[in-house]
Design a protein around this nucleic acid. Structure first.
Lengths: 396, 396
DNA sequence: GGGATTAGTTTTGTCACGCAACTTACGTCG
DNA sequence: CGACGTAAGTTGCGTGACAAAACTAATCCC
């Protein structure tokens, strides 16, 4: 409900120009940006100059063989490398991760640590994360402004309060990670987020301002249980309180096995990592790839486990697609590793159970195999604020 | 991705001022609007003058005893009555409806017709609707501009193409209602919409620019089957193709009874009107209120039917709430008539099955008993375009 | 080397808003 | 009953952001 004044106009067009440059596949010239935005060249020039002066964009020395076109050669523009960056942190059930990502989406520095954190003490775990974050920040290039920090957590988060309400797979309840980390952040605001939400953001936007296809999808993140997120038009749906996306607890069968959430027949009880391994008669430490290999080799129990998981995924996702009309499903985490075993049956069930399946067939695709997409997503989300309002870091 | 120019600024602020006046509970003065929008009085004055000249707003003759406050008395503003209106049409399974709604949300004229249209021929039904629309338009007040028309349909709609793809309960397939109605519309664009989507819009916005509480909810519309809509921040989620909200076909039990959609165990098979009457051993023509009365009087089969419906609703809605974090459910249509029988058990199941139920208890509320909320919603949606860009009807 | 072509800059004009002074229209109080 | 206070609404001026168009710059092509 905020009003608009002349300054808003400038803010909005600065953001538009910045986004246009970041979204381009190859560095565009001022003239290209003018054509893409339907602003005039003079206006674009002025805005670009401001963004370059502010260190958000930079001009590329087009050394290599130009296009050989008549006319004055263009000055290609791109996001500044290493000038602005954001810190992405993640506490997973099996790992800690810290990443420093810049405006081009490049990882300037990172640290990964594999560890079983189920049942760990929040205090000591967050201290380990703090140490890792300190190292990463030390190795940031000179003159690099860290503009934000985000922390991905596998649980239900109160974003406003910066509080982790509950992370059953970690065994954490009611934790405020900001206090343990604030020494290393130096006053930088820390934004918490659900791991699946942030991973989904990273999938939709592999770099700040850069949109990938598709921009509407349902994201499933398999770790111990199943996290999820719904992305509409490139934006992660957070819901009324920021707790949307709990697809792992959609009911597949009301008479199904009890879930630790207190309900029965949740998707997680069929397609969660532990549930699948259990159904296949394998130890909890077995990797999903091992399970997939056994299923392919003809192990009957492994095949049963994957088939049961596929059926549950099909039923749960059909409901989601019926309600949201988002016919693309992205599988990440352990689900990505067994994706090719699941996909045919899941797609078959979706085609049958989705009302609009007659006109558009739902598709299942696989996410990247990044072990910590949540950390990347947390950093990218912080950088997005910069792209959305570049005037904030310029001369105000 | 459109750029901003000075004109955009004016357009945006015109819309802001218009919305502010429409959203106010009592007619605000120019000074009130200035305070609410944080625009200056001079700017508001200019914009209001334009809107008054354009016939969108009007000054109220404050005849009755003013507040007796010192200072120059205010000139209260409100939406013009009867100057701009939109036509809302609806084809339901049991009725036809036509409404003319103005900017204040008042119904200027309407016509309702009860008829069993299941299996009707689209051509003759639409001709009847056309006649009704003609009568309604004839009775519009002098100087009333009809700025848009919308048609609510109980099925899957291709909004862009103006085509009804499938309405199983009517038995209609692949119909383009625009051609049958264009004679009466006189070039006015007709916008199709799903009945539940439009009813949900009317619930969220009882008048143009006026927001009711809540602005985030799941809407269930019970007719023969069950239609649904998801409203986030006052906006009906349409999904990738406009087919979102098919909650009636969320799977409650994969081993449940077959549904006409080709799937099994859909919510509609438990809580649809026909399904409930069938389970209660009643004739298809029985009213839901009659069913409710029997259940209250101790009829065991009727109680069984309502309990089964409540359980199915609980399971299906729990899934939706888990995915979307929208803890308010609005029941309309036949579900509204049996709402008080269903609510306790549905809320109990939601509290148990919704992951975030520990922090926020989901609530079930009842919609208005308007027989054709879709028609109202269709008209309101058309008027919303006017409110969103008032400059469109002024001096361009 | 001159012309064509394209990139980027400079200049001038327009328009919407903020600011502040002003006018209007009412109550209040001596 | 008339001066004063107060709040609503108007008027005139200044500012800033963008459009339009003329201009400069740098390259290719002949």
């Amino acid at each position: 409900m905020a009003n608009l004044r002349q300054a808003s106009l400038r803010h909005a067009n600065l953001a538009l120009v910045a986004r246009t440059v970041l979204a381009a596949d190859s560095p565009p010239s001022r003239a290209d940006v003018a054509a893409a935005t339907s602003l005039t060249r003079s206006t674009v020039s002025r805005l670009v100059d401001e963004l370059v002066a502010g260190g958000i964009l930079e001009e590329v020395e087009s050394v290599v063989g130009g296009p050989g076109r008549p006319g004055r050669p263009a000055t290609p523009l791109r996001a500044s490398t290493g000038r602005f960056a954001a810190l992405g942190l993640q506490v997973g059930v099996g790992h800690l991760a810290v990443r420093l990502v810049d405006l081009t989406g490049a990882v300037l520095a990172e640290r990964l640590l594999t560890a079983d954190l189920a049942g760990s003490r929040p205090g000591s775990t967050l201290r380990r994360l703090r140490t890792m974050a300190g190292r990463v920040l030390e190795s940031a290039p000179l003159g690099c402004h860290v503009v934000g920090a985000g922390l991905a957590l596998p649980g239900i988060v109160d974003v406003e309060a910066g509080r982790l309400l509950s992370a059953p797979n970690l065994g954490w309840e009611d934790v405020v990670p900001g206090v343990a980390l604030e020494a290393v952040l130096g006053g930088l605001p820390l934004r918490l987020g659900n791991e699946a939400d942030l991973a989904a953001h990273a999938y939709a936007h592999p770099a700040p301002g850069h949109d990938s296809q598709p921009q509407d999808f349902v994201y499933l993140s398999g770790e111990v249980g199943i996290g999820g997120a719904v992305v509409v038009d490139g934006e992660v749906m957070t819901g009324r309180h920021g707790w949307a996306g709990e697809i792992g607890h959609v009911c597949v069968d009301p008479d199904g096995p009890p879930c630790r959430c207190g309900s029965t027949g949740c998707l997680e009880q069929y397609a969660g990592r532990l549930a699948m391994l259990d159904a296949a008669g394998l130890d909890a430490s077995t990797t999903p790839s091992e399970l997939a290999a056994r299923a392919r080799d003809g192990d009957e129990k492994a095949q049963l486990a994957t088939r049961s998981a596929a059926r549950a995924l099909g039923v749960a996702l059909a409901g989601v697609v019926n309600v949201l009309d988002i016919p693309t499903v992205v599988l990440g985490g352990h689900l990505a590793q067994v994706c090719d075993l699941l996909t045919p049956e899941v797609e078959e069930i979706l085609g049958r159970r989705v009302l609009s399946g007659r006109w558009v067939s739902p598709r299942v695709v696989i996410a990247s195999d990044d072990p910590a997409p949540g950390a990347t997503g947390a950093a990218l989300l912080a950088l997005d604020e910069l792209v959305r309002d570049p005037a904030g870091v310029l001369g105000h």
